[in-house]
Design a protein around this nucleic acid. Structure first.
Lengths: 220, 220, 220, 220
DNA sequence: TATGAATGAGACTTCATTCAT
DNA sequence: AATGAATGAAGTCTCATTCAT
């Protein structure tokens, strides 16, 4: 309870995990949480995997939940930068396809599947964590993509009223035939995953452009 | 081997939960599993909620996993019959909208959200259960919807090459803006949920028809 | 508690197990107790093996301990009549050998080993039962054998001061190299068991006669 | 795999019970196992008697069986060193009597009786443990004694063909009138035990020498 | 007489957490 | 800062026993 007898990292806002030990712990904990889920993971196993003592875990994190939050935050951060750089100069169709394929492949990664399972799995117990994850993960992606669409609308290449919705639906068309079954544990081979990605994205692009391409009809 | 020693339900194939106690247990267990997840739920709490003794739980179900499976099966069954009766004589647009709205509202139900969380949450531990759930739930829905589309294609009202994919993508467009955030714990008011359903389905129908309505292309 | 509402067999002294059900139960219970020990046996398994309901067990026996006692009594009785008919007219050496071999083979029977294990295993909890079993089993055998020796002493064929002790020690020499290891779980093939019986008994007879045969020494 | 997470004793090969807690646990566990048998003993009672928490039990021993094994091993070790130092220079008769009395008194000790009961009681469940106990306990004693006899045979003091068998039978003659009834729970006063030991050993020595003393026969 | 549904105490074991060093 | 020994509450599951029918 007193702040003078405890180790520093817990008390201060040392978010920028400088310490080597902290890194070790986060790496080990992530690996265990991702493979066993929150409840299935035990602090003992995390300590073993991270190669620190159980006591040390509690020097850096107040309890299991906070350790979990820190892991998820880290995952989220690492997810962000990928996928999301749009090239405005490229043809829309190419860019849609590139984004769609990147997204489809991304959500099919075992690590991503596990992260989603883990977070949704305790969303009831820790809803703010889940909401934050959604907002900064899928939500953020959708907003960045929507902004790209906005620019294309402004450029007269697309005709979309609700770009936020269009972005979301395009993303869903690209990924759902992969993400959903994988989340439920359906076993898909790498080949099968690639096939599904290809088919979903191709059709999604076609559908998207059939709907939103400016003068999509007057091209005839 | 003999049927005379233990309680009947475990020994015989009493799947149709006739017994009152069995119903009680399933009701209590569903409630606890849905709110705490598989690992978070304890047999003790289930017994307390179901108002039976812990021992009785094991008279009716061999272990926690089998009790969980029974709960999920029940949920799944109740999910099936809804949503899925297509009226071939109605206009396609109306029918798409009806199906889309039913689906969107359905996946937004707290009970459904919780069931999905629970099942995906232990898909790593029990992948066959998850896969079965997917196949008989979302998978089944998609197949029934695809069959409807097939009939419409045959009737010359729609022009779709891959109806299975089209079905899936339509369904995803209808539900994802609801299902996904809700799964992650984002809090949406009833009003907000209805608004999103309306917007998603409306746009999904429009997109779908823009892409697949016969004469969509041959008007050129 | 009241005697009018309970079933008869428990209340009265119906020891002569007339009832078919009682026999069934004893047979099943013996088999389970012998293979699992007192604590390892469960009333549920006994009921299953005996093909009666668990409730019926408690109609015939007040509780697990009494059922066990009844089983042991039965075993004991069946053990008695074997082995123990001595033929006074036969040569002593032949008769010692016959008795010794019968005893050695008897104690090597799996059923006997198990009975001994079971009874000694709970002798701490139920010492009277164990003592009774000893007295009516090994004790009784030793007394009958000692009586035979008494007759031979009276007939002038043997010279023994303490026939009770001589009887006991002869019996021990015959059986210990079999009984003891088997009790501890040492695995002996049928062939090995027979070899040991043969060697032990042969040597025991020789030792016994070298010590106790009248004129054993004055033959010189 | 790493040694830093769990308590040391379980991970490392700390067989030599250095730790105080380990000693405490073994003492408590021995006492409970010896008085209740393996199945009758509960980890809760062991923890209470040992004055440690239940959790601590599992820090030092992986499970109940391993704790039991450790107790038995300890007992066995303590058994070995006693009784078994033979003085080749002493007269055979004196040495036989000394060994016989030591053995008889040893097997009459309550602790020894209980250890034997406990081990034979679960020999069905854990036969290797029982066999090991037999081999290192009674078996070892018999072998050491037989080696002594071998030396006496070599010295021309005894004439024995099968010293292993002779050793076993001598030991049995000394102890069986004590060990067997005590195992079954027959209650013998200290005085009675001493009387039996005296009588059994005296007679055993006499019998042994009558049979095996060199010149026993050639005196004729 | 015979049953089988129901119970609740208690079994073994795990694990998040604390604390002295 | 780091450890590891120690804890006790809580987990799943078993089982002897009771009771209404």
């Amino acid at each position: 309870m007193s702040s003078s007898t405890q180790a520093r990292p817990v008390e201060e806002g040392w978010d920028g995990g400088e310490s080597l030990k902290r890194r070790q712990i986060l790496a080990g904990a992530s690996s265990v949480f991702m493979s066993k889920g929150f409840n299935g993971a035990s602090m003992g196993e995390i300590a073993r995997v991270a190669e620190v003592s159980k006591g040390t875990l509690y020097v850096y994190f107040q309890n299991k939940e906070q350790l979990f939050e820190a892991c998820i935050d880290e995952k989220r951060r690492s997810f962000l930068a990928r996928v999301l750089d749009f090239h405005d100069e490229a043809p829309v169709e190419d860019e849609l396809r590139r984004f769609g394929m990147a997204l489809a492949r991304f959500v099919a990664e075992p690590e991503v599947i596990m992260a989603i399972r883990t977070v949704t799995g305790i969303a009831e117990q820790m809803p703010e964590l889940g909401a934050r994850f959604y907002d900064n993960g899928p939500g953020h992606s959708a907003r960045v993509f929507a902004a790209y669409l906005d620019r294309k609308v402004a450029a007269g290449e697309l005709a979309i009223q609700n770009t936020a919705l269009a972005a979301l639906q395009f993303a869903d068309m690209c990924q759902s035939n992969l993400s959903r079954p994988l989340l439920f544990g359906v076993n898909l081979s790498a080949h099968e995953r690639e096939l599904r990605a290809e088919a979903s994205v191709t059709q999604a692009v076609q559908t998207f452009l059939a709907t939103y391409r400016h003068r999509g009809a007057d091209a005839c």
